[in-house]
Design a protein around this nucleic acid. Structure first.
Lengths: 224, 224
DNA sequence: GCCGATTTTCAAATATTTCTGAAAGATATG
DNA sequence: CATATCTTTCAGAAATATTTGAAAATCGGC
């Protein structure tokens, strides 16, 4: 635990404690950066903006986080691009200020939106392309070994396609203005005491000893 | 696009196309590594195991992906730890083989399970600690400026706490054996044509010009 | 308990990402 | 339109993360 060696002279008055809590939060949020797919500094800048609730300018951020101007500038721009911070102009002041989105769900929606755009959509495009590669390999009649392999391969790609289409679709729903409904649903679902009835069906041990597993694609339900 | 300069002599027979499709898939899946929070090689090893459907040994993997023994060993161990690959023993063979989970939803559940454990749970623990830091700062009576700041700070931490508690809870539900229900729900939700009725309530423009935003924490629903 | 086959480990080498700082680019103001 | 102020850019430096390869540990059979 690295705490900033006695934040302020006195030691225990509210301002000092607040400062300490903020610093801890910034550090913790910075460690989560990987989970959001952004750089550590970017997460720290966001943490600072969120936890203080203030609009801060580049110099404020440079000083508080002890980072370079370039780094601060890049991070802020990225946060704005991600839609989790916005530029604020103050009359009579040439400087630009920035403030963080304060609604946690809105923050999360912005992140989901960006990550779908940056990760899921390109992945889907690639999967469609990949599926097409093996298309011409379909021999018409003879059920050769190769033919079976190609079929299995395509079933695996199709299973991924279907999964990520579902992810994308759910994501869009969550992110869209209408998404508030999903947010509510999620909250309630999470709060629900427990599942109505039925235990684990039975332990289906893997007995298959052999190689060459056939893909059990497509099923989303379970056994009827 | 780097394709392995003519996979096999002939050029167009099924085996060659299959190989090409596999290589493309491995490359694409490797690029997604960041999204899963694993290293690129680890993702590529997983891609290879998934897309071939075979059980492969360390040497197979080293050769096909052109990586070192150590790297292959580490990646495989990690995949097993994550629960998306398993060790397979073949009678009369000292070598260890590995095969990937083939059910896409099961793979995803494993990833969610691990990431909750590695990211969400520690984050929650830290947030609880951070909330406690500012506790002693609560002055009893006088509504000072400091007191208000502390309250706002705590409201912000609480908003995050509530959000991540929801995430954790939903995650557990999804991951648990019972989670099949959630999977089904997700699939159906994603497939649903559109939202029943009602448009966006109205655009609530941010009019606040001043600093020092009060956190609007806690609300998950909307206005009734 | 020893042997050879296999896996694991880890310090050093390499690759990748992130950060800095100074210079170039904006932009409002008089 | 010159100036002062603020922002962005980007090549090189620094910090991180990944990979290698060879040595050490493990394992199963005899």
């Amino acid at each position: 635990m690295t705490k900033p060696a006695r934040p302020l002279p006195g030691g225990d008055e509210p301002a000092a404690l607040l400062r300490e809590a903020q610093d801890r939060f910034i550090a913790v949020w910075g460690q989560m950066s990987g989970a959001w797919g952004i750089s550590r500094t970017m997460a720290e800048v966001h943490a600072l903006l969120y936890i203080t609730g203030h609009s801060l300018c580049t110099d404020d951020i440079m000083e508080r986080l002890d980072i370079s101007r370039g780094n601060a500038s890049m991070s802020l721009r990225a946060l704005v691009e991600w839609g989790i911070a916005e530029r604020v102009h103050k009359r009579g002041d040439r400087k630009e200020y920035f403030r963080s989105e304060q609604d946690v769900w809105a923050m999360f929606r912005a992140i989901v939106r960006e990550r779908i755009k940056r990760e899921v959509d390109p992945l889907l495009a690639s999967l469609y392309e990949i599926r097409d590669i093996s298309r011409p390999a379909h021999t018409p009649a003879p059920r050769t070994e190769d033919a079976r392999r190609v079929d299995d391969h395509e079933a695996r790609i199709d299973a991924l396609l279907e999964f990520f289409r579902t992810v994308e679709s759910l994501g869009h729903r969550f992110v869209s203005p209408t998404g508030r409904g999903l947010q509510l649903a999620a909250t309630m679902l999470a709060k629900l005491p427990a599942w109505p009835a039925g235990q684990e069906p039975a332990s289906r041990r893997q007995t298959q000893e052999d190689d060459d597993i056939s893909p059990r694609a497509g099923h989303h339900g379970g056994e009827p």
